[in-house]
Amino acid sequence: MSTRDGDLILRHTNAVRVTHWAVAIVFTALFTSGLALFSPFFFWLSALFGGGPLLRFIHPLAGVALVLTFYPYALSHLADNRWLPADSRWVRHMFAYMRKEHADVGETHKYNAGQKLMYWSMLPLIAVLAGTGVLLWQPWFAPHFSAGVRRLAGLVHAACAFVMFVGIGIHVYAAIWTEGSIDAMIRGTVTRAWARFHHPAWLREVGGKDEP
């Protein structure tokens, strides 16, 4: 990418961006197909999947695709999401941050505490969704489990899916709200000013290598 020298900083590599959007597309498929089953109010969404039976067939496969795309992505971000003392401070001032009273939140590395919370909640959530999903998966796996186990799995799966719906809803809104962050996930770069404002500690770490 050709830009003015030092203007743009690489925030997400090509591989990370491609994986992120793969996860996003797969999640959208899971979200819409899951929602159709979650509430009859949304059953019409099954039309997007070629009808109910196909939806039922595709959903668990999309679930597997999510596991296969999300976990490599997540594991490669492990180090950047370690919880630091500054993060607890961020959480304490979270509402001030949401009111754009920025001063109190302090040093932020590559990800702020809100992003880290999202990260750490998705790790177990997707694992539980995958596990309970397999217990419900007809016709291959579910017949091996008793009705009682499947009822419980259904309850846990639906509850976790709900938490994930809300969680990802917040994630998407935060990305829209934070100007420049969707651009960053599409083109990979942020401006120096953006980095200094949102992630000053990160900017210091990567300060040396500005070129995209």
Partner: peptide, 19 residues
Amino acid sequence: LHYMRYGPLDVPPGDRPDG
């Protein structure tokens, strides 16, 4: 509602663009 009340979280003008 949040967006209507607070607007986007953009980089403050003084901090722009690369200075």
